[in-house]
């Protein structure tokens, strides 16, 4: 979900530009440190690959199809720092050349997709890697999309784009569907890649799950915090929003929490099932 210019209020896009710029600089330094020099063309070609792979239709049900978003796939293949960098490059090109997402809103879009989305994918992959690779990768795909979408929604609400309760729930439902689709597509794509050459998928190093869990909790807090904050826009916007039946913060928070909780539950159950089958 790329936010165009004109949708975010000045404090929102300015804050996110200010937050994202140093974050991208940090990510670029990390990516440079982590990667050998032969990876520079690799990162570029992988970015082009994601662009092109988005053209491939995945049929889901009669008459509908989805496509890969790719954030989680890049995270699994390249590691989080490189994936963030590649996604940022894609977002810059989309904003300037393809009119997909705004230029001032670039900070917001980078924050939602290249930073928070990748962080969600990375943490989910680590949290569930012990249970089953497929569950971990599904969670990575689903949570990255859900995180990006919830953040974008929250930012729009903070900016005073009015939404009725029905619209809010409907869009969260849509997010949930696309999140599950992204999870399934990412699993299928990773499997197909592994069949061709397992060495292409970097194995997850064993780390403390506690740290990953805490980081994940922090990320969820940021997402939910955005949705809560969206119920309390600053005074100027409240003036412009007079007469709009906006939704209370409880409903928004609930909506975000329910969406994330459902994905968590799904992954938890999936992990349990898999490990039970393995031990049986």
């Amino acid at each position: 979900m790329h936010i165009p210019d004109g949708f975010l209020s000045t404090p929102v896009w300015a804050t996110l530009d200010v937050v994202s710029a140093p974050a991208v600089a940090w990510v670029a330094r990390r990516a440079q440190r982590d990667t050998q020099d032969n990876r520079i063309p690799l990162l570029g070609v992988m970015g082009a690959f994601v662009f092109a792979a988005q053209m491939v239709n995945f049929p889901v049900g009669p008459g509908t199809s989805g496509h890969l978003v790719g954030g989680a796939l890049l995270t699994v293949v390249l590691g989080p720092a490189a994936a963030s960098l590649v996604l940022t490059a894609i977002l810059v090109l989309q904003a300037l050349i393809f009119q997909d997402g705004g230029v001032l809103a670039l900070g917001a879009n980078v924050f939602n997709m290249a930073l928070a989305g990748v962080a969600a994918a990375y943490l989910a992959n680590r949290l569930w890697a012990h249970a089953s690779r497929s569950v971990a990768i599904f969670a990575a795909g689903a949570l990255s999309v859900m995180t990006s979408a919830c953040l974008a929604l929250g930012q729009l609400l903070i900016s005073g784009v009015p939404m009725t309760g029905g619209v809010l729930w409907a869009s969260l439902g849509l997010f949930l569907i696309s999140a599950i689709m992204e999870g399934a597509i990412t699993v299928a794509a990773v499997r197909a890649i592994e069949r061709l050459n397992p060495a292409w998928i970097t194995p997850q190093p064993a780390t403390s799950r506690a740290v990953a869990a805490i980081a994940m909790a922090a990320l969820v807090l940021v997402v939910v915090g955005t949705l809560i904050a969206s119920a309390a826009p600053d005074g100027i916007q409240r003036l412009t929003m007079q007469g709009v039946d906006s939704v209370g913060w409880r409903a928004r928070t609930m909506a975000g929490l329910v969406g994330i909780a459902m994905i968590f539950a799904l992954c938890y159950l999936g992990g349990k099932l898999k490990s039970r089958r393995r031990s049986a």
Binding site: V24, A25, A28, R29, A31, Q32, I40, P41, L43, G44, V45, G47, A48, F49, F51, A52, L85, V86, T88, A89, I90, V92, L93, I97
Partner: peptide, 18 residues
């Protein structure tokens, strides 16, 4: 960051090839 600039250029260069 130069690394980001290089990635942007490489993505654009190979976008249409792929």
């Amino acid at each position: 960051p130069r690394m980001l600039i290089l990635v942007i250029q490489f993505v654009y260069r190979y976008l249409f090839v792929i």
